[in-house]
């Protein structure tokens, strides 16, 4: 066996062993590897948010007893996934707040809370991002995104982990992708100070977005 033949055999064996090892690894799913490989070489892709398949939820503690959940039904914007970064530009229609109670929705739209006549939208515009981890426990890439969140006319900088939850193909929309984020805000920083004892100061926002490739 010549040196050249030995080398070719060795390299082939090494590649085979490496591939087999990755495919059978209990901690790294094959799909994640494929996704990571794909994202590591892909160009920036911008997705337009599909409000029908997206959700913006909030959670606040009531009477220091139970968490109350509500949502905003209308949002728009884009998110862009690039090789090592992710950007978000989301606009939420505050008038579309839905707490599953008509009377409470009217109250939430009033100046006591979201003041929707004066501030009809809340926005988040990312300013920087980095990859936090290539694969979380579900095999998804996680970014740390920093941006300006504007609510009730007040703007604060927020930093939150944003998970790229996957990609797919829709017969109607074509290529789609999803991201999800969760962040806690202090409502008084956004000028919402109503009922300080009755309602919690901390509000959790859960944002799950699906977008179609532009």
């Amino acid at each position: 066996m010549s040196i050249t033949t030995f080398s070719a055999f060795g390299i082939t064996a090494l590649i085979a062993a490496t591939t087999a090892g990755l495919a059978t690894s209990p901690t790294v799913p094959a799909a994640a590897v494929a996704a990571a490989s794909a994202t590591s070489v892909m160009a920036a892709e911008t997705y337009e948010i599909d409000a029908v398949h997206s959700a913006v939820l909030y959670r606040i503690k009531h009477l220091n007893a139970a968490y109350n959940y509500g949502r905003f039904n209308e949002m728009s914007g884009t998110f862009t996934i690039a090789d090592a970064t992710l950007s978000l530009d989301v606009t939420i229609n505050t008038e579309s707040v839905d707490s599953a109670n008509g009377g409470r929705d009217d109250h939430l739209r009033s100046p006591d809370f979201f003041n929707t006549k004066q501030f009809p939208t809340a926005t988040f515009k990312s300013t920087s991002a980095r990859v936090l981890t290539e694969e979380n426990e579900d095999g998804y890439r996680v970014y740390e995104v920093t941006g300006d969140f504007t609510l009730n006319g007040e703007t604060e900088s927020l930093t939150m982990p944003v998970v790229m939850t996957g990609k797919g193909t829709s017969p109607r929309a074509g290529k789609v992708a999803g991201v999800e984020a969760m962040v806690d805000i202090n409502r008084s920083e956004f000028g919402i100070t109503t009922y300080p004892g009755m309602l919690g100061e901390k509000v959790r926002l859960i944002v799950a977005l699906e977008g179609k490739l532009q």
Binding site: D106, S110, D112
Partner: peptide
């Protein structure tokens, strides 16, 4: 009137 139209703080 303001209370009936949902603003307790006003």
């Amino acid at each position: 009137l303001l209370s009936a139209y949902a603003s307790k703080t006003l």
